[in-house]
Amino acid sequence: MQNLALGGLLLAAAVVPLVSDGYWLSIATTAMMYIALSTSWALFSGPTHLIALSTGAFFGIGGYMVGTGMSDYEQSFWTMALIAPLVATALALLVGLATLRLSGVYFVIFTLGLAEMVRNLVSWVQNNFLGSRGLYVLTDFTEAHIYWMLLAVAAVVFLAGSWLNRSRLGFALRIIGNDEEVARHVGINTAWSKVILFMTTGFFAALVGAIVAPRYSYIEPNVVFSPELSFMVVIMALLGGVHRLWGPLVGVIPFTLAWEAITVSFPNSTTLFLGLSFLLIVYLIPHGFTGLFETMLGRMRK
């Protein structure tokens, strides 16, 4: 029954490009991108309570590598879309090994400037060694193709998430999130469990970045390594609630629509609204929409 409902939902999501016009398809594609990003973000940050701000960096690696591979090295989109996530996973491994063995604050701080740092490094390498040519991503993909690819990634993220929730690793992570001391005492390798999950997040973020790259056509480090993206992903996931697999999904859809309205009506105050959404979540809905629903359900049952 449940599987049938999920299958129906997937089918409904898959026919969106067939029934909507260009404007709504573009919003749906953006939403699908954020669904994949936020859900994979929550796989790691949900149970561990570590706010990872590295999405922008991994996403940028995905987009940039597709750009540079196709423009400078004549590789196909598919080759690059395969290599980029592996590079991001390797970076996540390094970042994770350096920071996740220590206290969580170090991790948050390290990821905070990561996108900006990688962008500076990439711009420097590009200007000094590769020659600063523009990177064009020219493919035959239409918006609908990108949407379907993102939908496939999102579906894989959900599958991975539901497998994780039932696996030993997921259980270990929940214990780590509740009390790391206890986790260590029952014999969980806390650092490695966190690093593996963080690598998964990095992998998916870069994959999404690679898939979305054809949307930009012209890739510039300043565009793809956007720190704002990291914050958007965090807000959407927290708004929905990260203690359920489908939580981020509940946050992404209303937020994407609201954000669309905000950027159209107040293009100069987006940062202000981003800040207000953060404050709103912390002070009024700390457990997200799913937390809110669950409290209401609990009250009704009483």
Partner: peptide, 17 residues
């Protein structure tokens, strides 16, 4: 961390204006 992020964005927004 989340609350001060919010404040920092609000401050940036106000300063930009």
């Amino acid at each position: 961390i989340l609350a001060t992020f919010g404040m920092s964005f609000v401050l940036v927004g106000v300063m930009v204006s």
